[in-house]
């Protein structure tokens, strides 16, 4: 049932470019989709490990920069008169590089930050993104600093018989994001239903207990961070090749906050939470545009976030699911979505 519902949703989304070929609608949906992938990856940390990681924009930005730089090529001095040079690579190499670099930094941050918990952990993750922003801003030779990396090639796909096809058009970009998003969703579902997922939930619920029964807490946390960072890197890479310009502000705290709001609103620790929250917050700015100035919108998001945490702390998806079982007990579609792990 769950799978049927999920695939119906994917099919409905895939039909959008055919039914509404309006480029503006597609561009809004594509951007929303990219941030939903970011939110799905953040949910793995925030929802399933219970660690409030507020440096998520770091992985998103790293993926974006790595992917853009690999596909643009670079030639930089690395001290001692040595130079590091890379010729422009195909975009899919950049995409993989984006995932790898973000994943590697995920491992580094995991190793560093999971030495501490609570407030310290939160502050370290924030500082991590901040340092990366400073590097992107000032390592002009590599990143072009505030001038931004421009002219990033669009994503491309290898198709049998046609070779490498660049994805210029809005429907193509949209389908690509939908495809990657579906993969990310399935991967996260696989992870949370595996041994790793059970270990993560065990330590979220009671770390001391989990430790005492022999779960290697830091080990599993680092695995979750690497996975989460890798998916965020993939989202960042899609972003870079979609908007085709990247600047140091992708590391800003506000991007992390956007993803956090998506996860919290939809329901952290539920598979569909980030998707629902992401759709709401990805589409709202454009629906409200013209009727409310951006400042007023952000004020509304802030208020909504406060109200949700205070009165609906589990988010929309569990709340809606909570209403359904009253009809008839087996509502496995929703129940499976809500269940953090079997």
């Amino acid at each position: 049932m769950s799978a049927v519902f999920g695939w119906l949703f994917v099919a409905a989304m895939a039909a959008v470019p055919v039914v509404f070929p309006d480029p503006y609608v597609l561009s809004v949906l594509t951007s929303a989709g990219i941030f939903i992938i970011g939110a799905i990856s953040l949910n793995l940390l925030l929802g399933y490990t219970g660690q409030l990681s507020l440096g998520h924009a770091a992985f998103f930005g790293l993926g974006a920069y790595a992917s853009a730089l690999v596909s643009l090529g670079f030639d930089i001095g690395i001290g001692f008169g040595l130079r590091l040079r890379l010729d422009p690579q195909p975009v899919f190499v950049g995409f993989l590089a984006g995932i790898a670099v973000a994943g590697a930094f995920g491992w580094l941050l995991g190793r560093l930050a999971f030495r501490v918990r609570g407030a310290y952990f939160v502050v370290i993750t924030i500082c991590f993104a901040q340092v990366l922003r400073m590097v992107a801003l000032n390592w002009v030779e590599l990143t072009q600093g505030p001038m931004a990396l421009i002219g990033i090639p669009p994503a491309s796909l290898w198709l049998p018989g046609q070779g490498v096809v660049p994805l210029y058009t809005k429907p193509q970009s949209f389908w690509l994001v939908l495809g990657v998003g579906t993969l990310a969703f399935l991967l996260v579902r696989q992870v949370v239903q595996s041994r790793i997922g059970r270990a993560l939930v065990a330590l979220r619920e009671n770390e001391t207990l989990a430790r005492s029964v022999g779960i290697r807490v830091t080990h599993y946390l680092v695995i979750a961070t690497v996975l989460s960072a890798g998916i965020a890197g993939a989202a960042g890479s899609l972003f870079a090749h979609y908007v085709r310009i990247i600047d140091p502000d992708v590391f800003l705290f506000i991007y992390t906050v956007t993803m956090v709001i998506m996860v919290i609103t939809g329901g952290k620790g539920t598979l569909w939470g980030p998707v629902v929250g992401g759709l709401i917050f990805g589409l709202m700015p454009d629906l409200l545009r013209g009727s409310a100035p951006p400042e007023a919108q952000w004020i509304a998001y802030g208020v909504l976030m406060i109200l949700l945490v205070m009165f609906l702390p589990r988010g929309i998806v569990p709340a809606v699911a909570g209403l359904l079982p009253a009809r008839r007990r087996p509502a496995p579609a929703i129940a499976a979505m809500v269940e953090p792990a079997p």
Binding site: Y24, I150, V243, I245, D247
Partner: peptide, 20 residues
Amino acid sequence: EDNKSNPREAVAAVDKLVLR
């Protein structure tokens, strides 16, 4: 359309102006 003193926002602004 505000570009918020940022090149990426400038691109987003042009997207909105032209497409929408």
